[in-house]
Simulated scan of single mutants.
Amino acid sequence: MSEPESVPPQHLPGHASAENGLVVLDGPDGVAVTMSPDAAEETGRRLIEAARVAREG
């Protein structure tokens, strides 16, 4: 998935918290995502893998 040309990449990390048995990820520009613990855990793995690939070029 490529980034739209008009949206610059964010350089600040989001903030994750646990609320009422769910995981809430608050990101830049008012982005907020609520996930189940399982979805959050898998998303975390996928983000780490994508970051590794991006660093390798």
Rank of each mutant, 00 (worst) to 15 (best):
A39C: 09
E42C: 12
P9C: 07
V33A: 08
T34H: 00
A51I: 10
N20M: 11
P37I: 05
V33C: 08
E49C: 03
E49T: 13
G30N: 07
A39F: 06
T43C: 04
T34A: 12
H11Q: 02
V7W: 11
D26P: 02
P8G: 04
S6Y: 14
G27S: 13
R46L: 06
D26F: 12
R52S: 04
G30M: 02
A50K: 01
G21L: 03
D26I: 05
A32H: 08
P13L: 07
V24I: 15
L47E: 09
E19V: 15
R55N: 14
P9Y: 03
S2E: 11
P28R: 12
D26R: 15
S2M: 09
V23G: 06
S17K: 14
P13M: 00
V31Y: 13
G14E: 03
S6F: 10
A18N: 08
V31L: 15
E41Q: 10
P4D: 01
G57M: 05
G57N: 03
P37F: 04
A39H: 10
E42N: 13
Q10S: 08
G57K: 00
H11I: 07
E5F: 13
P37N: 09
V53I: 12
P8E: 03
R46P: 01
V23I: 13
M35L: 15
L12F: 09
A32N: 07
D26K: 15
P37T: 01
S17I: 07
R52M: 09
G14I: 03
A18L: 15
V53Q: 02
D29E: 14
S36A: 12
S36M: 11
S17E: 14
V31K: 13
E3V: 04
V24W: 05
D29L: 14
P4S: 11
G14H: 06
G21P: 04
M35I: 00
R45A: 08
S2F: 10
G30H: 07
V33I: 14
E41F: 06
E42I: 11
D38Y: 01
P4Q: 13
Q10H: 10
A51N: 13
P13Q: 10
D38S: 05
A16C: 08
I48A: 14
L22A: 15
M1N: 05
A39V: 10
E56H: 14
E49W: 05
D29N: 13
P28E: 05
T34I: 12
E19A: 01
A51E: 03
D38Q: 00
A50E: 11
P9Q: 07
L12M: 06
E5R: 13
M35S: 00
E42K: 15
R55I: 03
P37Q: 08
D38K: 02
E41A: 10
